[in-house]
Structures are given as structure tokens and as C-alpha cells.
Amino acid sequence: MGVVANFIRERIPVSGDQLRELTNEPVPNHLRRWWFCLGGTPAYLFVVQIVTGILLAFYYEPSPKAAYESVHYITDEAAFGWYLRSVHKWGATLMIAAVILHQMRVFFTGAYRKPRELNWMVGMCLLICTLVTGFTGYSLVYEQLSYWGATVGANITDTVPVIGVYLKKLMLGGEVYNERTLPRFFMLHAAVLPVSIVLLLGVHITLLRLQGVTEFQFEDEPEDGPKHFNFFPDHLYSELIIGLVLMILLSVLATVLPSTMGPKADPLTTPEVIKPEWFFYVTFRWLKLFSGTAAVLSMGFIAFTMFVWPFIDGLVRRWWPKSEFSVFAGIFAVIAIVGLTTWEALVKH
């Protein structure tokens, strides 16, 4: 043992103390409460997505000629292919849900406030990357809804003033959905976006480590008790428990509600009912409420507002230090989002 340890120590000159220093960040006590672990959940699911995504890519062929058949092969012929595909799909759903919940927790606890404004903005970038990954992934199956979803998405981009038309061409690799479109979506989904997410996560966690986790004091905790506990192994165990619960949840969801396949994409027939994935219901409903450019511009404005919210909130608090403005704004936003999503989910058109 000693020989091996020495061999390694000589070649990787990191001392145990340094390692402990690096990993054993003191974790604030409030993280003993499970809902504060929502930040780790999307990260764990992201790993699941990477693993299952790589596995799916073993059989997936990103060309309009073969895409549908290859997904069909994965779903119906490859051993456990249906399971891995279903886990990937449910993983995406849970990951987006977890990201949104994490963001809501950060928002309502005011954890984005000075000096953490930039990390909020990095988080916003992560949110956008996650949503776009979901959108492109959905398009890869090349079933009817994938195709028409992508077409509609591209045409929404088109309504953006000035740059929209170029964005659309860039997105589709041509004027309309063509045989070079699917490889584009695949590269975005399987390379560009995951790498972006990894890099952004790196920044996100680095900033978190540099600034430390926002600390909260809860009323039921003793004032004089220890304020921190160890990341290793205590918090790691918590994360392991969350990970396993997620794996079990994913397996059960995949078995009970496995991903199926709709009819193959047919560029000549638009399906009667066309809907995006649930996480785009809000946008979809919004676009139906307002027409064309107005809808897109207002969406852009809302996104921008969310982006710079820490500064807006800062300004407001400078003028009215006691105001609960951001909480009310948050409640309003949540009601609006839930309302629009439910509305879209309940109606056919």
C-alpha cells in the first residue's frame, strides 16, 4: 500500500490537507433542509443526461433519412434502449423542473443580491441553455411534432426585428427545414450546449465557492449551535440520497410512462394539434396572446428583465429599503407562469 501511495503522491503532488481544503467547504446549516439542495439536483440530473445522452448517441443517426428509424431501433430493438431513452426524456423534464425550482428558491430567498448578481446572470444563461437543449433534443426524434415544433420555432425566430431572418437561416442552415437542419440541431444538443453548460456550471460553482453560500438563520435553530457542517461526508451523503431517489424516480417513470414514438415527420401534413414540450407552454401561450413581433419583443423584454433583476431589485431597495417589491413581483411572475402553462395544457388550440 505504502509503495502505491508513494508512487501516486510523487506524481500527483497534492497533499491530503490541500484536498480537504478544496473539497471540505463548510456547509451552512440551512442546507440540512432538503429544499436548499435544489441546486445540486439539476447538476446530478445533468450528469444523468450526459451519460444517457452518450449512450443514445451510440445508435442515433442525425439525418432526416435515418433519424426516425434509428430512434425506432433504440426504442424497439436495442436491449433496454426504451429504458435509457425514457430516462433521458424524464431526466430532461425533471432537470428543467429542478432548475426552475432552484431559481425560484434563490429568488424568494433573495440569494441573488449583492454581491451575487453576476452568479444570478450566469444562472439565467444556464436556464436558457437548458431550455434550448430541451428544444433541440425534442427535435431529434424527427417525429411529426419534432418537425413542426422546429419549424414553428424557426419562424418565431424569424419575427425578431432586423436579425431574426439571419438567426432563422443560421438555425435551420437554409431558408426552410432541410436535410442540413437535423445535424445542426444534433451538434447543438449533443456538443455545443452541453459544453456551454459545463463551462457555465464551472463559473457558477466557482463564484459560489468564492462568495460562499448565502447563509440563513432559521428561528427554530439554536443561536449558539454550530453554523456549519462538513461538506464531506455529511453533505455528500445528502447528495447521494438525492441522486438515488432521482434514479429510482426516473426508473419508475421510465417503466410506467415510457417514451413512445409519434408518426414520422411529414413535411406535407401539419398535425391537427401541435404543442411544444410543457416547459414551452408559457411561451407558446404568450405567442398566441400577442401577435408576431410584439409577442417576440415582449418575450425578449421579459427575459432581459429577469436577467438584470438583481440590479433592478438593488435600485428599488436603495430607494425603499424596506419594500417587499421583489417578493410581490416574484409571486406575480409565478402565478402568470403557472396560469399560462395550465391554460395551454387545458386547451387544444
Binding site: 451519460v51 449512450l55 451510440f58 430493438e77 436495442a78 436491449a79 433496454f80 434502449g81 429504458y83 434514479m247
Partner: peptide, 12 residues
């Protein structure tokens, strides 16, 4: 899970 993955990757 790893066993499932192995079975998936091994040709049917």
C-alpha cells in the same frame, strides 16, 4: 445500472 448499459451497448 452499469449492467443495463452494458447490455444495451452489446449487439443484440
Amino acid at each position: 445500472f452499469a449492467a443495463v448499459v452494458g447490455r444495451y451497448l452489446y449487439p443484440a
